[in-house]
Nucleic acid binder design. Structure first.
Lengths: 360, 360
DNA sequence: ATAAATTTGTGCGTATGTATC
DNA sequence: GGATACATACGCACAAATTTA
């Protein structure tokens, strides 16, 4: 049999849940409830006390009793309104802009960002994924680590899908997972960057590509495609591929060797995997007493903020950054709320012409 | 005054916490407690009821009252290993470096960062704090918003302290809260930056200060202090104070007017609140066909990454950024794990001399 | 195995304290 | 200041579960 206080408790709780009493509505006074249910004041207080513990009611001495924000408080531990974001770096390069774009969108819906970085290490990516899984996130945005290599964390991604946590990849994706993604058309970017160099009369174009992420591979393939359309030269001698695990000192030594060839043999332009590399290469070129762009033209990728402040200003391929973050935030919330997968987004590249390329 | 039931509650709770009553020990019966504390049964039941809600005690009808496994239950929500970080911006200026420094330290201990920004708006700071409170974070690092103005969120900070969530301020602190902080010695920074301009022979130094955060106020006071030591000129005509809510167009107009005075009257140097402002001011100076540093010398604050890439390279006061983040991460984990407050950290300023200041 | 004693749970009446309107 | 409403507190009675004789 239900106790008296339980009858009162359940009846009032039912009225709150069904909307008869809405959030911050004032409940009847204790005296009124005593008459309504024909019980003592103790019983009313006991019943309301239970509801107060469960955060359905709050009481103000002298003021009255009110309906608490039970939906928010009860949902909080389940639907924490947190989006996990895993990127290779947090503070460097274009990542702050991407993260800011995500934040700009999702914070309007009351979401926060739980951030973690992988430092380009798949083992760290794994640890980040496990942490995210424990943290009760509502969705996850990941920039894959070494996306061109085999994906050691497939099991975790599958597990997250099983748990009903939507995932979205940005910048690149693992081809063996059916997970939506937002990225650049990097192949096309590599192609048009190389095309413009050929159009400007360059014939030997050194390509520098990091090939453990798929951006680098696609950019390289675009470069190769353009090269095949414009030139008879063998590619191999004019392309340097590297992985993030490589000793960068040795890579720069190889670039230096290419630049130290005699004037007829050496490249007149360098296509760099990204702006970060391009800025380092510019320092190297200058240290060899070569001028940019008179002796060597340089193109980068991503339109890193610094690119327009260095001298000469760097010609580069645009990366949407903030917009990508914004779109990623929108897409992950759409998936969370509509529970439906949406189409991938691919941005077409756009060349930003500045002063690091010479028209011959 | 403490109510009777609170006296009983606290006394029993203290005995549980101190180990007089251990987990699953049987407590004295209600009758015994009535005699011990010389109160009614109602009061005993009220006291024990509170302890039951907080999971310090469980009761078995007919069986007795026992000590609950309070350590496990109370620690569970704290186990989230997440540090909240609230800053004015996420992607801009020096904040990515600070955040990266925090991450570098705390990720080694398995912690993640839950990030939120205030866009320099105290109301947004409030929302961020409330979100953090709901998210079960273990600690909180906050860069105060408009720290020189009255703090509308004191109640939330107090609540967080009550919940046992350690808080740490960086860059500035609210003076009406006893919460540890890590910041620059901004007064000294303002002083030495102004000193060097006087040492270099400048006599009229325009000071530009944002005064709704305490960094700006301290830098301004350092400037004033140096000015008093070096000059007879009235300060007021050579100092512009503004708040983030001000129309920056109007502020720049005032700077322009100061620069358009005839050569004997106009300032020969400008001390800028931070590098971000300094870079904008440099554009303004150039647009008036004045040369830096030949006509106008400029000093900023914070050693923003861009400062060494622009032309001329900006002379500025160092801001530790990554180190501050790192130290903040270490301090918040120390507080969490050792449960003891530590001393504040104040970094002494260091002048970085580049090319934006002329020795006259 | 049963009954009695013990202990907590439910419930009422009353009185006084204190915050709000 | 007065009326109202929630908070604390005491005493009593009976119910229900457990322990003990």
């Amino acid at each position: 049999m239900e106790n008296k206080y339980e009858v009162v408790e359940h009846d009032i709780k039912e009225k709150i849940l069904s909307g008869v009493y809405k959030v911050n509505d004032r409940l009847p006074t204790e005296s009124e409830l005593m008459k309504t249910y024909n019980v003592s004041r103790y019983t009313i207080r006991h019943a309301i006390g239970e509801l107060e513990n469960d955060h359905y009611v709050y009481r103000i001495q002298g003021g009255g009793m009110f309906v608490d924000d039970w939906q928010k408080i009860n949902d909080a531990p389940l639907k924490s309104k947190v989006i996990g974001v895993i990127t290779t770096h947090i503070a460097d390069y274009i990542f702050p802009n991407i993260i800011a774009g995500i934040d700009r969108y999702i914070s309007n819906s009351g979401y926060s960002i739980l951030i973690s970085n992988t430092q380009n290490n798949p083992e760290k990516e794994r640890q980040s994924l496990l942490k995210m899984m424990d943290s009760g996130i509502s969705g996850l945005i990941v920039e894959p680590t070494q996306s061109a290599l085999s994906n050691i964390n497939k099991d975790i991604y599958m597990k997250l899908k099983d748990l009903g946590i939507p995932i979205l990849f940005i910048n690149a994706h693992y081809s063996d997972l059916e997970i939506p993604y937002i990225e650049m058309n990097d192949f096309e970017g590599g192609r048009i960057a190389t095309d413009i160099l050929f159009d400007y009369g360059h014939q030997k174009i050194l390509g520098l590509f990091k090939i453990d992420d798929s951006q680098g591979v696609h950019r390289m393939n675009g470069y190769i495609n353009s090269y095949r359309n414009h030139s008879d030269y063998s590619l191999l001698s004019e392309m340097i591929m590297y992985q993030s695990s490589d000793n960068m000192h040795a890579i720069f030594k190889r670039i230096e060797n290419a630049l130290l060839m005699n004037e007829n043999e050496r490249p007149t332009a360098i296509l760099c995997y990204n702006d970060q590399l391009a800025i380092q290469v510019m320092d190297l070129v200058r240290s060899l007493s070569l001028k940019i762009p008179e002796d060597i033209s340089i193109i980068g990728f991503d339109n890193y903020q610094l690119s327009q402040y260095i001298s000469p200003k760097l010609t580069t391929i645009e990366h949407p950054k903030e917009k990508m973050g914004h779109d990623a935030g929108k897409m992950i919330l759409d998936i969370i709320e509509e529970k439906q997968d949406l189409d991938n987004i691919i941005y077409e590249p756009e060349l930003i012409i500045r002063n690091s390329v010479l028209k011959k």
